[in-house]
Design a binder for these strands. Structure first.
Lengths: 241, 241
DNA sequence: TAGTGGTCTAGACCACTAG
DNA sequence: TAGTGGTCTAGACCACTAG
């Protein structure tokens, strides 16, 4: 099986960078030089260089050349799914409460809404084999005409709830992750002792225009949630197929 | 300022997907159709479609066409840096111990080494304004001839330590994040009470060939560590420039 | 068999860089 | 001014898909 020309070139350049023959800051041979050296057209060379750039190894400086990038070491790909995290996947959920309430100060702040804008509160327990593993609270600014059918709420993901009319492609989502000790109501609901460690994940949803459309917190019993993240060069956020 | 042809096309297609005119699973017009419709060459059309694919909106099925992707909602970009996380950045660190020891069962397991392979243990405190905010332990398989100068250890990042001779471009890194309560030695070192909540981040480093070259755990006092992750379409792992 | 995306080429023109 | 990367074109040939 003959390797494609642009793959051959990108493989060779990538290897040179991985081996340290080309170091961060170093300039790569120019498009024309590579074109001559490998006897392939400039268009094909550009395809290889564009791939290398996509993979994070290089960047181009128009008028100057291509350079090896300083490796970014503090960005990881994190896997997170409300219902399915290592250590225990929630097979089901139990709806505790659905309500429309006037906003608290905290809700007004988090959702960026005025005090006369009502808020939908959804409280759930996530269960694995019948036992609670997490307590989940979500807040959405109330829109008139928004249907609140329990069945829908139970099976919808957060983005689906908050962005009912919005395409998932135009939603942004922020997570904050921290550790806390269980106390008060949460202890009762999760059936753990006061002070039991929890992993707390706050989620905030935005439209493409940065309007907040949802905010929520999930309190995982520490034993039932382990988040995983990974870093490696050339990684992609989206698989093919 | 006239927009470039391929930017115009990618903007229009992206908007159609974001607005839901084109839904997940839908087929896009073929390269030839787009080429005709927008009166631009097929090469330029392909450039636009390749960008759209890079951004995660579409994928191509050779022989069939381009399709709108089912949005991936469980992958986030996580920012993590040992020395600098929201809620308190460690301005300095204090080296507690550097040792070469025979491996414990746990170390053998985590580092995937035999029992006659020695292990370097590095223990540090991360400090902010003089006060401890995290306790950090790292384990590296011992290689003869590896210099262990304190100064180097103090200022090196984990990948730099573990991959001394290895280019950062050929290293992989996994994180595990969980919550725990402080107990024993950690309480004393971090000056917190028994049961105080901690955010624990385990790091494992691999070569490109999946050989483990380092393992470590950082115990952050919960108040001093808040991790952030975000999700949005079209995001990139690497900035330009 | 008609149509689709994938690879590759040669060539033109542009703005920008840096000596 | 010579060289660099960026945009864009027209055209050729290929393997694959699906009726």
């Amino acid at each position: 099986m003959k390797e494609l020309l642009y793959i051959q070139l990108v493989d060779q350049l990538r290897k040179k960078i991985q081996l340290g023959v080309l170091k961060p800051g170093d300039m790569l041979p120019s498009e024309n030089e590579l074109s001559q050296e490998y006897q392939i057209s400039r268009v094909t060379v550009r395809k290889s260089l564009s791939l290398l750039e996509q993979e994070g190894y290089t960047y181009s400086a128009p008028g100057k050349g291509y350079f090896v990038r300083e490796p970014v070491t503090d960005k990881y790909i994190l896997n997170f799914n409300e219902m399915n995290n290592a250590g225990g996947s929630a097979a089901s959920s139990k709806l505790l409460e659905v309500n429309v309430v006037p906003p608290s100060t905290k809700m007004m702040y988090e959702l960026q809404i005025p005090d006369d804008r009502y808020v939908i509160v959804i409280k759930r327990l996530l269960l694995a084999e019948g036992a609670p593993i997490a307590y989940d609270v979500k807040y959405l600014p109330y829109n008139r005409g928004l249907p609140l059918v329990e069945r829908e709420i139970k099976y919808a993901t957060f983005p689906e709830l908050a962005g009912k009319k919005t395409s998932l492609f135009s939603i942004k989502k922020d997570l904050k992750i921290c550790a806390k000790n269980a106390s008060g109501e949460v202890c009762t609901l999760l059936n753990v002792e006061e002070g039991h460690p929890l992993l707390v994940i706050s989620q905030k949803l935005y439209t493409a225009e940065n309007k907040v459309i949802g905010w929520g917190e999930i309190y995982y019993i520490a034993e039932f949630c382990e988040l995983n993240a990974m870093w490696s060069f050339g990684q992609r956020l989206y698989d093919n197929g």
